Amino acid sequence: MVRILIIKTSSLGDVIHCLPVINDIKYFVPESSIDWLVEESFADVPRLHPGVNSVITISLRSWKKNLRKKSTWIGLYKSIKAIRENHYDIIIDFQGLLKSAFFTLFTRGDIHGFDKASIREAAASYFYKHTHPVSKQIHAVVRNRELASKCFQYELLDQSAHFGLEIHNINNFNLSERYVVLIHGSSKKSKQWPMEHWLKVIQFFNVLGLRVLLPWGNLEEYHFSKSLRKASTNSLVLPKMNISDLANIISGAKCLIGVDSGLTHLGNALGIPTIGLYLDSNPYLTGVYPNIKVPSVNLGEIGVTPTPESTISQIEAII
């Protein structure tokens, strides 16, 4: 049995972009057991993949804000203890940051990562025993898959990705109607789509008789959802949900439309027809990546806002 530890701690979209690596490794190294080190807030994602044996969590974001609290140091101790519990044949840091490289200090096994020219923070490469060159000018999914292929010395057969998430007990919270999910919230305002554009798309779904579900993650997103709800009797503002419950909801949707957000990538990874709306990031590098199961489309790019008309045209093509 080949024991493997994957280090990809955050954020939601980045964690999802690393999922196809699991399927690759399981194909080329069938006698393998894979553990994953991840931020607690994103741990639901690797837990949904049947190829992940164990999930080890850290709470680095919380710890940094509460350095004087005893609970912080107890939590750090427990995470380090869990990391050191097993000896791994191969440890791969896909994050490529000092914060992720720090945790390799507590691992037992051969550590791999991007080389100095390929990594996001060059100093992190000095923590690894083995470093590998991977182009920065390719999609994040491909970068992760190529790094893994170099660690295990196998050749990728094709560029199609299988994310491998499984939800066995689908519970759509008594949502008997056909519905779609719209993801309007993003970490940066420059990535958000104008309200008037969303309203045109919602009106289109009303004509189709599809209910529109509106998730939210903070107070600002909640008020935005409420404003969209006022303009459409066929919309529903969801309660605050964790990633696992949202995955449950999304898995039953006819399609998902979303800005550059981890939840948009989650819809695609769950095999839901997905349209990604890009205004201030490069979809070639971090956009919705083609899923072998369903159609997915990226619209827009840095400085080019997708129009409601082009979005509706793509909805008609994939739904």
Rank of each mutant, 00 (worst) to 15 (best):
residue 1 M to T: 14
residue 1 M to Y: 09
residue 5 L to F: 10
residue 9 T to Q: 14
residue 14 D to E: 14
residue 15 V to P: 03
residue 15 V to Y: 04
residue 15 V to I: 08
residue 27 Y to F: 06
residue 34 I to A: 12
residue 57 T to D: 06
residue 62 S to Q: 11
residue 65 K to M: 03
residue 67 L to A: 01
residue 73 W to T: 12
residue 74 I to H: 01
residue 77 Y to V: 00
residue 79 S to N: 05
residue 79 S to E: 06
residue 83 I to N: 07
residue 85 E to L: 03
residue 88 Y to K: 02
residue 91 I to R: 03
residue 91 I to Y: 01
residue 93 D to M: 05
residue 95 Q to L: 00
residue 96 G to F: 00
residue 97 L to E: 11
residue 100 S to D: 07
residue 103 F to C: 09
residue 104 T to R: 03
residue 115 D to T: 09
residue 120 R to C: 02
residue 121 E to V: 06
residue 123 A to H: 08
residue 123 A to P: 04
residue 124 A to W: 06
residue 128 Y to H: 03
residue 129 K to P: 02
residue 133 P to N: 12
residue 134 V to R: 08
residue 141 V to G: 09
residue 143 R to G: 10
residue 144 N to D: 09
residue 145 R to P: 04
residue 146 E to F: 02
residue 152 F to L: 11
residue 154 Y to C: 03
residue 155 E to T: 15
residue 159 Q to N: 15
residue 164 G to I: 01
residue 171 N to E: 13
residue 171 N to W: 00
residue 171 N to R: 06
residue 173 F to Y: 10
residue 173 F to K: 15
residue 177 E to Q: 15
residue 178 R to H: 14
residue 178 R to Q: 15
residue 181 V to G: 07
residue 184 H to M: 11
residue 184 H to F: 11
residue 189 K to T: 12
residue 192 Q to G: 00
residue 198 W to T: 01
residue 203 Q to W: 00
residue 204 F to Q: 05
residue 205 F to Y: 10
residue 206 N to R: 05
residue 209 G to M: 03
residue 214 L to F: 02
residue 216 W to Q: 00
residue 217 G to M: 01
residue 220 E to T: 11
residue 229 R to V: 09
residue 231 A to G: 14
residue 236 L to N: 04
residue 241 M to S: 07
residue 244 S to D: 10
residue 246 L to S: 10
residue 248 N to C: 07
residue 251 S to T: 12
residue 259 V to S: 05
residue 260 D to V: 00
residue 265 H to P: 08
residue 267 G to V: 07
residue 268 N to I: 08
residue 274 T to D: 10
residue 276 G to T: 06
residue 286 T to D: 12
residue 287 G to V: 05
residue 288 V to C: 10
residue 289 Y to M: 12
residue 290 P to L: 03
residue 290 P to Q: 01
residue 292 I to T: 14
residue 292 I to S: 11
residue 296 S to F: 03
residue 300 G to A: 10
residue 301 E to T: 15
residue 302 I to C: 03
residue 310 S to H: 07
residue 310 S to Q: 15
residue 315 I to W: 02
residue 316 E to I: 08
residue 319 I to D: 09
